[in-house]
Design a protein around this nucleic acid. Structure first.
Lengths: 238, 238
DNA sequence: ATCTCTTGATAGTAATACTATCAGTCTTGC
DNA sequence: GCAAGACTGATAGTATTACTATCAAGAGAT
């Protein structure tokens, strides 16, 4: 499988490596689709088992519980995103341009046209992006975050933030809040996208009468993120 | 009760008004403490009932389920915050100063010294603030958000955002993203506070060796928010 | 041909999220 | 002071969820 080579996951994330068997891969692939479909709290291993014609107990052999499955797929997404970022900024030298790529990536813009076909065939990136928007915060907003963190479950997210923070410092070496700026822009991208779709009055991007619901509003969201990021990096007020 | 006058809640939020009886008030007050203590998913009406020496069924007479209790206390917090905002900016004319008040309020800075003693005695605002940071997003990140939204359950949050957006427009009448800017700054304040405590490597505010864990880092977080907000409002790059 | 690894199949448990019922108690109106 | 209504306590019960345990069958490797 292509994505096995691409993304090697932390072993603490699972009981048995889901990429090591056909069943494991189906659990992850269909798990993503089911979660995107009915949401994290409504998903159960029972429903997932039925969907892929296996048994609950078999899924438990791969993942301790559904929270771990969520952490797994979200971690996979962050690793994928970091890979995309490295790949896409490979031959760019201008850090400003790199940051613009970051913003587009966060909104999953132009992703399919960048040669990630093999991955897209494996896992449904669009569905996964939706999960990250709606459910990712539930991966860390728990009581056992300290323990989970000790097991490095959030390392992919931290790595992505570090990398973005690095680009920020390339662009503006004296910027004093690089890490917070990086995590902020990621989170802002996601819940503004969520608000845009679900509580549009909290945003300025709601669909206008005559337009494709997503494309135009996504464009406005991108402009907002661009404005936020670069205004903060170009000011002298700290 | 003082806070009954202060904050009148949407009737869709409960089955029976918890402010109308001693039991109802204990459910809310102790519910907040329990939730702050063990977290939303670990809390059950059983545990809460034991804690206040009543029965599960009695709690169900007030709230449909624990999710509704969460939505209720979070809504209460937003209304309280908006009230504080109005109260504290009452005699301020400079919109910049108003925005600075907003930021302090979001971090619950100097709150006890502003004459809200009666409320603080009723509900534990600090515990509630902790709940809002850790659990508030779970109030809207659900499948039934559309239905909940139709019932106006998120109106207090929207009202607060509107009010902040209004101040933003006072400060900078031509700013094109007032609502998104308002919701962003609220959310950023909260999860940066969360990251600071739980995943400090995602921020730039982690505790230094020799300092009170909260006060100094909170100061840095405030500076960051200040920087973010005003750099975006003072730029001409849109 | 056997050994191991994996899955299927069935069962079962503890906890959770409710719902129903009924008997006291307390209040309020008269 | 008494009847009606509102609220709570107490007990019971159900459906679903989140697991754990066990064993047999099949597939692949040696």
């Amino acid at each position: 499988m292509e994505y096995t080579v691409l993304v090697r996951m932390n072993e603490k994330l699972f009981l048995r490596d889901p990429e090591s068997s056909e069943l494991g891969r189906r659990i992850v692939r269909q798990g993503i689709l089911l979660m995107a479909d009915i949401g994290f709290e409504e998903m159960t291993f029972r429903k997932l088992a039925d969907r892929i014609s296996t048994k609950e107990a078999s899924i438990y052999r791969y993942f301790e519980n559904k929270h771990r499955l969520l952490v797994y797929v979200v971690a996979w997404y962050w690793q994928w995103l970091e890979y995309q970022l490295v790949f896409q900024t490979n031959n760019i030298s201008d850090p400003r341009e790199k940051l613009e790529r970051v913003l587009k990536l966060l909104l999953l813009k132009d992703v399919s046209s960048f040669g990630s076909q093999t991955i897209t065939d494996e896992l449904d990136i669009v569905a996964l992006h939706g999960i990250v928007i709606r459910e990712a915060s539930k991966a860390y907003l728990t009581r056992h975050i300290t323990e989970d963190n000790r097991q490095q479950l959030f390392k992919p997210y931290k790595d992505l933030c570090s990398r973005i923070a690095g680009i920020i410092l390339e662009y503006r070496p004296d910027y004093p809040f690089a890490r917070s700026r990086a995590s902020s822009i990621i989170e802002t991208a996601h819940y503004q996208a969520f608000f845009m779709q679900n509580l549009p009055s909290l945003t300025d991007f709601g669909s206008q009468p005559n337009e494709t619901p997503t494309s135009e509003s996504n464009e406005r969201l991108l402009r907002f993120l661009h404005h936020l990021l670069f205004s903060s990096l170009e000011t002298d007020r700290f």
